[in-house]
């Protein structure tokens, strides 16, 4: 049985190599500190997908939400049309757990951090864009983090090829959709959210693609921070 499995993988692997040479990330951009009220804010754009993020805190916390040894992080995701639903809640949770893992929350006991994400346009890879915007906003707010994180979405097309940073149309056609949060220090997976069916091989390949793609995003983070603290444009 194991032989059969292995050979199947190799077949799949061969297919991937031929098909996945065209993996690319859409153009992306970021603006930090664009809102005057929040303590930190950023907007992140991936292709046409754009998300705005604002961070308030560390600030006073409600007694009911107070945690005695660390800060309470609240993440809110505002959809563009209508009130927030279950889909938004699940994405909020994904972002919250990633942020909680990265932030040094024990530095601010008994205080609240609020991260608000506003969807400006959804053209695929929304969750990864939310993660990137969240990280940039947290950076802008000057909160201490053990590592930075970025989000990468991979879609597996009907013919088994991997598409990184898919558009909404590509997401619709895809067989499986995975979003990973990757940390900046060891390129480890901090959070994963998957949809659809895929093999172990495909999962590992998507993780590998995301890790490669995260290098580009982290380089972008670095460039934008360097630009921000440079003396001229």
């Amino acid at each position: 049985v194991s032989f059969l499995r292995r050979s199947k993988f190799e077949e799949g692997g061969m297919m991937e190599v031929s098909a996945s040479n065209n993996v690319s990330l859409r153009e992306f951009g970021c603006e930090q500190n664009l809102l005057s009220r929040p303590d930190g804010s950023a907007s992140f754009v991936q292709g046409d997908t754009s998300v705005m993020a604002g961070v308030y805190g560390p600030a006073e916390v409600k007694v009911s939400k107070e945690i005695y040894d660390r800060a309470t992080l609240e993440v809110l995701l505002q959809p563009k049309v209508g009130p927030a639903g279950v889909r938004e809640q699940s994405q909020e949770q994904c972002v919250r757990e990633t942020c909680e893992a990265a932030l040094l929350l024990s530095l601010h006991p008994r205080s609240s951090l609020t991260l608000i994400l506003q969807v400006l346009h959804d053209d695929g890879s929304l969750l990864s864009c939310c993660l990137n915007a969240a990280c940039m906003a947290l950076m802008d707010a000057g909160l201490s983090m053990s590592c930075l994180f970025c989000g990468v979405t991979c879609a597996i097309g009907a013919d088994g090829d991997i598409i990184a940073d898919p558009t909404a149309a590509q997401e619709k056609e895809s067989r499986a959709l995975m979003t990973f949060a990757i940390d900046s220090t060891e390129r480890r997976v901090m959070m994963s959210s998957t949809k659809g069916s895929f093999s172990v091989q495909e999962l590992q390949e998507c993780v590998a693609v995301s890790q490669k793609a995260s290098e580009k995003v982290f380089q972008f983070y670095r460039d934008s921070v360097r630009r921000r603290y440079s003396k001229n444009l």
Binding site: F9, E10, G13, E16, V17, S20, N21, N22, V23, S24, L25, R26, E27, F28, G29, C30, E31, Q32, N33, L34, S43, V45, G47, D48, S50, L120, H121, I162, A164, Q201, E202, Q204, E205, V207, A208, V209, K212, A213, K216, F220, D223, S224, R227, R228, S230, L233
Partner: peptide, 30 residues
């Protein structure tokens, strides 16, 4: 929104479409 993002601000940066190097990906996976 992506187009209306100011380019001349020091807090904003934009990057063009980038390819991700894909060699070894399936090998890493396997």
């Amino acid at each position: 929104f992506a187009e209306s993002m100011p380019q001349d601000r020091i807090t904003a940066l934009k990057m063009d479409q980038t390819d991700v190097e894909m060699t070894n990906v399936s090998q890493t996976g396997s």
